[in-house]
Amino acid sequence: MLKIIDRYIVKKYLGTFSFMLILLSIVVLVIDVQQKIPRIENATAIDAKLNLTYFLVHFYPFWIINLVMTFLSILVFISVIYFTSRMANNTEIVAVISSGASFHRFARPYLLTSLFIATISLGVNHFVLPWANIQKNQLEAYTYNATNKEKVLGTAPVSAQLSKTEYIFINSWNKREKRGSGFVYQKFDKNRRLTYELKASDVTWDKDKKLFVLNSYAEKTINKNDTEKLANGFDLKKSFGHNPEELFPNELLGQNKTTPELLKFIKREKEKGNSNLNAHLNELHQRTAMPISIIILTFLALSLSSQKKRGGLGINLALGISLAFVFVFSFEALKVVSENKSISPALAMWLPNIAFFPLAAYLYLKRANQ
């Protein structure tokens, strides 16, 4: 008997969740396309191939994967509240408990299904989502407003710390064309004394040879006795160990890396002395924190909706959507706080789970003991 009920609950859980997922994807896709059509038309003016059809094929499928994974725990939460409230209103839960099953036993299929979804979510977050983000982020800047698009694709000064003694500065670097002017590379000794300097009027990234091409360059080597050796030329190809995206990373770079790659990147940046890594650390911790929240929110939803209430399904959904808003808002707000270095990224990304877990445990135990 209980196995039949288990299958029934799992079917309800997955069926409602799948319906909510498909519904959200379609509604948000239609709204987003309508909103961004003018910006896509501006992109078409830059490159004829970047039309609406191109975006629907090469951008939005990967954008939807990112959207779904961002809101997965909230979809689970609302889905569980919806189908469990309906079961409670139909007195199905009362019938199960009256048959002699404990509330803990009734909750078992909720646990197993949430573990199943959380496990898949972990795998997708750590390995599949970065692949989707690579495809998405190639075009996402074209869907931004003019100010944000300029930050990603426009021209701006950039700098990079290659190691504790090596630095690159470029006065004007175009991120889309990967070319710039006013290039300076400096190397210091352990006493912070300049030992080598390379300047160039222009710099271009050769993506085929994976080298920087420096035009009208001048080299200066400073010896230990403070004498200088000078050299210059018109064309110099040089490698600095990384491509421009790695040397001058933006906040989207971490999204494009699988977790092993992201861990290596963070380690390398720390060794170089880069302390501005909180955006990437947020990405790293969120990949695990969000799937764990699926289990916590499943039991919170079960505890809130497993009793018949005055107001029925409507009051449960209103409460669920309100809590979902608080959960999502807290994640986004804590990202900003962490990037401003007010709290650590690990604490920021785990704090919503830390706050919601005691609430879910208390309400679950209270409901189980009734």
Rank of each mutant, 00 (worst) to 15 (best):
I5N: 08
L194D: 07
S85A: 14
A160Q: 00
E246M: 15
K209W: 01
A118E: 04
N243H: 15
E283L: 14
S73E: 13
L129K: 10
N51M: 11
F77Q: 03
G254M: 05
L365A: 08
V33I: 13
V76E: 03
I37G: 00
N282C: 09
K151P: 05
H104F: 11
K272G: 15
V94W: 00
G123L: 11
F62V: 07
F77E: 03
S114V: 12
F299Q: 05
Y196G: 05
H285T: 04
K210W: 04
K187T: 06
K175I: 07
I40K: 03
D226W: 14
L304I: 10
F240W: 11
A88D: 00
E251H: 13
N125W: 04
I295L: 11
E197W: 07
H104W: 10
V28F: 14
R179S: 11
N148I: 08
V337H: 01
K136A: 12
L304H: 01
N145W: 09
F234N: 14
V76M: 10
L214T: 01
P61T: 07
T119N: 10
F327N: 03
L194C: 09
E269Y: 07
S303Q: 08
P260E: 10
N250I: 11
I315A: 08
L277K: 04
A146W: 03
V27S: 11
W205R: 11
G312F: 00
E246K: 15
N89S: 13
N274E: 13
F331D: 07
I74W: 05
L23P: 04
I117Q: 04
K309Y: 04
K335G: 09
